[in-house]
Structures are given as structure tokens and as C-alpha cells.
Amino acid sequence: MTDFTDRSKPDILCVGSVLWDIIGRSTMEMQRGSDMPGRITRLPGGVAMNIAMTLARFGMRPAVLSAIGRDPEGDELITACGHLGLITDYLYRSEDLPTDRYMAVEGANGLIAAIADAHSLEAAGDKILRPLIDGPLGTEAAPFIGPIALDGNLKLALLDDIATHPAFAGADLRVAPASPGKAERLRPFLTHGCGTLYVNLEEAGLLCQTTFTDSKTAADVLLSRGAARVLVTDGGQSATEADASGARTQVPPRVTVARVTGAGDTFMAAHIAAKSRGEDRDTALASALRAAATYVSGEPPL
């Protein structure tokens, strides 16, 4: 069992993409081919990174497991992680793979387009899991005990292995698809009936090969397809948390949308943090929706 008496030890692991987000935002509505004034920023990002950053703000001690190049961008990213309170001791640093990047364009009407370049993470494969399989975080005989947040930037074969690997048998797996285009990578967690899935309405539809009009219906169908537990969000309309014991649906607070990239990651992290504080299911869902709405409005989620 992992020893958490040392404050330098993580109490949650965030496994997946840790990269640079390059985001262009305009205050005007945009369409395909639009050329508008705005701001372009470069910030630490990636699904695992976004979740870890939010968890740290909520007072948890997250460690990130990912692949980062031994290039100047990677060195800068490691430094940024440290400033944000993240534990980076277990990262895989590659000599020949560049640090990954994500690029998005957002307008007043939301996300216009995005490209996630996570090729280095995919190429590294199970190398990023060595600290969980061969120590120091855990082994097959003494698996890590605690929550692990996974993102769908990992390849399908690796996610399938994680769903059944003895080294993850003691973990509370929390899984996000990273993007609708990678939603089907979460299928092993339906097949094996393990973990908690955090998906939006579109991602739920892709996983179930259908189209949903509300979060409650999507959650019910995901459970019928084998999911152990799900949280389905539908933007500003509703969110549903469900497992075999029942479901609860809530409507998020109404806010003016200032940004969208990272909102789902904030929701997931806030929900994990709320459960770690001992909040009941209804209160935890409300806390997560409030944090996500605050983030979307342009404010920090605290």
C-alpha cells in the first residue's frame, strides 16, 4: 500500500497528456475562414495537466504521469508544473520525442477548431506507467491505492491493459476521453465494467453509437452498455451522475461564456476533490458544476 504520511507523496495520480496549450481567443463570433483580432496565449495544458492543476488549487497533491521531451519546451513545462504545485518526479522524459502541443481557436460562440498533437505520449506507450507497475508508486503485488485520473490521449490498447492490469486493481479509476474524436478509446471501461467515466453528451453518443438529447438518457444507456459509474454533462443544460444505485441530474449555474477549453477537465477535477472532502453525491455534483461554470465565465474555479 502506498504511504501517504509523507506530504511529498501524491494523493492522486493524473495519467495522460501534459503539454503546451496554444489558444487563440477572439471576443467576436467566428466561423470557418474567419480572420479576427484577439489574443494568443501559451499555457500548460493537456487533460491530465488541467485536472492536476485544478486538484492542486483544491488542496490535493497530484502527481502527473506523462511523456515530456528533453527539449527547451519540456524543461519550461516541468518548471511550470513545479510552480503550480504538481509532483513531476515520475514523468517519463524522452531523449528523442518532442514535447506535445495542443492548438485551439475560440470565438464568442465557443470552440471553432482544435488540434491535439499528442504523438509523443502515444509513442511513449506504457513507459509512462513504469512507476505504477515497477515502483515506486506501486507494483502488481502491492498496487497503488487511491484515485487515478486517466485521459483518452492514451492509446486504446494501453487503456484496455489498464482496465485489467493487476497494478491498477486497488485504484479508483476516473476516466475522461480527452475529446469527442477519442471517445471510443474509453470502450474498455464499458467492456470490463470498471472506473468512473466523465463524458459530455457527444462523447456519450459516440461511445454508444447513437445520438442523445439529454444527459439522463445518455447516462442510463451507458450503464446498460456495461459502465460501472458515469457523469454525463450537456453544456449549460444539465449533468447526470449515475451508477447501479441510482441517478441524479442537476442544472449548472447560468454564466456568460468567456472560454471553453478545459471546462470538462475542471468539472472532473472539482468532482474528484469534492468526493475527497467527503461530500455526498448531490453536493459533489453541485460543487463540480459550480466550479466548471466559474471557470467558463473566465474566473479561477475557486
Rank of each mutant, 00 (worst) to 15 (best):
D265K: 03
R101L: 15
A204Q: 00
L55F: 09
I162G: 01
R187Y: 09
Y198M: 08
F189H: 02
T294P: 00
N109L: 04
V296R: 01
S26G: 10
A167I: 07
R225M: 06
T240D: 00
I112H: 02
D243C: 10
L206V: 02
F4C: 12
L156R: 09
E95V: 13
L65F: 01
G82V: 14
T27S: 12
D35T: 14
H271Y: 15
I145K: 14
D21S: 06
D160V: 05
Q31G: 12
P10L: 11
L223P: 05
L206T: 00
R39T: 13
D214L: 10
I272K: 05
G264F: 01
V47A: 11
S34C: 11
D6M: 12
T27Y: 06
D265S: 04
P252D: 03
T256R: 08
K275Y: 07
F189L: 04
G110C: 07
V255Q: 08
V105G: 07
T191P: 04
E76M: 11
D6S: 15
I272Q: 04
T41Q: 12
A270V: 03
A273G: 11
H119S: 14
L91K: 05
W20V: 15
S224Q: 15
S276Y: 09
E122S: 12
D161P: 00
A239M: 04
A63Q: 05
E95S: 14
P180R: 02
L91S: 03
V221K: 14
T2D: 13
I133D: 01
A218R: 06
T261M: 09
R174M: 02
A269W: 00
L97K: 02
R174A: 05
M49Y: 15
G45N: 04
T266A: 04
K182N: 00
R42A: 15
P147D: 15
L289M: 14
T261C: 12
T196W: 04
M30C: 15
V257R: 12
A167C: 10
L302G: 15
Y92V: 08
I78K: 08
H192G: 07
H165Y: 06
Q237H: 13
S238P: 01
D75W: 11
I68C: 03
I148E: 00
K216N: 07
P188S: 12
G85Y: 03
L222H: 02
P44R: 06
R281C: 11
R25W: 06
L302Q: 14
T210G: 13
S245E: 05
T196I: 10
G69N: 05
A171G: 01
A171T: 04
D243Y: 10
T256F: 04
K9W: 02
L207H: 00
D35C: 15
T191I: 15
L173S: 06
D75C: 08
G125C: 10
T256Q: 09
P147Y: 08
V105Y: 03
A67S: 13
C14S: 12
H271M: 12
Y295G: 05
S66P: 01
D96T: 15
S17V: 08
F144S: 03
